[in-house]
């Protein structure tokens, strides 16, 4: 089955080209500043995220890329000392507006974390969790259907269909991460944020996730933080390079990796620092 999938994918992938810049961005960061207590972690970041595209955020450790990602669905709200300034919009709506609440926002902007974090429940319940709390599904049959499609989209259904009621923590690392992705897409968000989703996985599992990301692009807008430049080059259409809390450069992935404008980008992708 994975054979088949791979073939389907290899047909699709050459077509991946960045959307023309004139399209309306799905999300837009405008002079985003983030402070942890006294320390400023992000300086005036302006970044557009185009719909149905994979945007990769790269840069050395501590450059602020994860911080920016967490701003996009207000996960930073969880941290007491964190303060965000500037403006971030989703479909031209300010997401930090007081009338929009984080719960609503996070249903539209889902997130997948660095370490697979399945809940200590069954695989089924893990996936059903989102639809249940948001009330997307009315009946048991609806939920069954959502669980199945989400797991299928995450490429996990075949592997787990016989043990949906076993705990999600019993899966392998790669399977767990795909479960987390299935869990995120079960809510059917518009944007999926991924914070180094493969950093805790082995190469085979990583390849599967990357393949999955590419497929998900058709239905979702994806922002991925990654440590690996190869990964950014493989999965993304646009790449943004962060350094010391600044957005140094953003552009088509191909351009960033072949012909960066900024010398710092050049230095990073050629491995001089990072």
């Amino acid at each position: 089955m994975s054979e088949k999938k791979k073939m389907a994918k290899s047909d699709a992938s050459p077509a991946s080209k960045a959307t023309p810049p004139n399209a309306t961005p799905k999300m837009k960061g405008d002079k985003v500043k983030v402070f942890y207590g006294e320390k400023q972690a992000l300086m005036d970041v302006d970044l557009d995220i185009q719909p149905n595209e994979v945007t990769a955020l790269i840069g050395p450790s501590g450059c602020g890329k994860s911080t920016f990602l967490r701003c996009l669905n207000r996960m930073n709200d969880v941290i007491d000392i964190c303060r965000v300034e500037g403006k971030i919009t989703l479909d031209d709506e300010d997401i930090y507006d007081s009338t929009l609440d984080p719960v609503q926002l996070r249903a539209r902007v889902g997130m997948v974390f660095q370490k697979p974090n399945p809940f200590p429940k069954s695989i089924y319940d893990n996936v059903a969790y989102g639809p249940r709390i948001h009330g997307t599904a009315q009946s048991k049959a609806d939920i069954d259907e959502i669980v199945e499609t989400s797991l299928t989209k995450a490429g996990l259904f075949g592997e787990v269909k016989d043990r949906l009621l076993e705990p999600g923590t019993g899966l392998s690392g790669g399977q767990q991460q795909r479960l987390c992705i299935a869990r995120a897409i079960a809510v059917n968000p518009e944007v999926i944020l991924m914070d180094e989703p493969c950093s805790a996985l082995d190469p085979i599992a990583t390849a599967k996730i990357e393949e999955l990301i590419d497929e998900l692009r058709e239905n979702y807008t994806i922002v991925i933080v990654t440590h690996s430049m190869q990964q950014a080059a493989r999965v993304s259409q646009r790449t943004a390079f962060f350094h010391l809390g600044e957005l140094v450069e953003v552009g088509d992935t191909e351009q960033i990796f072949t012909n960066p404008n900024d010398s710092r980008t050049q230095g990073y992708i050629t491995g001089r620092f990072g």
């Binding site: 539209r108 639809p131 259907e145 989209k153 809510v187 059917n188 058709e218």
Partner: peptide, 12 residues
């Protein structure tokens, strides 16, 4: 890769 069911956004 394109499942039959249409995308169903949570009714917020």
């Amino acid at each position: 890769s394109k499942p039959g069911t249409e995308i169903r956004r949570p009714t917020l």
